[in-house]
Write a protein that binds this DNA or RNA. Sequence first.
DNA 1: TATTATCCTATTGATTTTATAGAGTAAACA
DNA 2: TGTTTACTCTATAAAATCAATAGGATAATA
Lengths: 136, 136
Amino acid sequence: MLSKKTKYGLKALAFLASQKDKQPVQIAEISRQENISQKFLESILLSLRKTGFLGSKKGKGGGYYLIKDPKEVLMTDVMRVLEGPISMVPCVSLNFYEKCEDCPDEKVCSVNKLMLKVRDANLSVYRNNTLADLIN
Amino acid sequence: MLSKKTKYGLKALAFLASQKDKQPVQIAEISRQENISQKFLESILLSLRKTGFLGSKKGKGGGYYLIKDPKEVLMTDVMRVLEGPISMVPCVSLNFYEKCEDCPDEKVCSVNKLMLKVRDANLSVYRNNTLADLIN
DNA sequence: TATTATCCTATTGATTTTATAGAGTAAACA
DNA sequence: TGTTTACTCTATAAAATCAATAGGATAATA
């Protein structure tokens, strides 16, 4: 299941990407337009800022804005920040690899074998979609 | 993340599929061979029996065995039973469809749009793999 | 200096996951 | 018929994660 955090984060990014100008948009407005709890959204946008997707401006006329062109924002990067690893098990993860404790040998592990295919399928979707592809 | 339930369930199914004969295998043996908590495995195997993947036999010489030929067991069916919906959001689910409360219109929803592609990518993996493909 | 709006930490409540315990039931076998 | 074996079932509990809330701090603007 997609976490609400990711869902809200994607909606917020798409909302910002669909703005005509590059003017900052306030959390309150995104929260209102996208039906998202404002406080929860605050923490999500903060993490997107800290990871380089968003910029922010404080005070009157402030808010959040996209740093890059939506066409340059890969879904792989967004998903890894919001949802975490794209792989369903750490032993097939490119960016978050970890050995399974219970598994004596990955090379003959049935789960590893299947999840490798799943990872590749998901990666190819996320690599071939940018933020620009999420809006119309 | 893949749940332990699914991971253990897949390993148990693969273990049963790799048996030469069709003789029942005891929970205790699967648990030992695959490093799975026996009590937890019990409940997983029970659910696989109730959903038609496994048969069981009580008493001495009893245990669990595969009902169908591994080649006939699609991963879509296994995953839906063990892990639940293949879709990451209910609004793109084939078998567990549900409308999002917060979303006014799916047709213009950025999350829906992306998750539809993800669903199709995952489905194509699960539809093109059977239990037989998990073993060597 | 007053207002606006982001920044940050802490905490809480709900839900899900991952088991564990223990008694019950059915089959095999001597 | 009685004992052993091994699955069946329900209940419960510990742990982890998720989703949300509270409230004050900080910085920019006018």
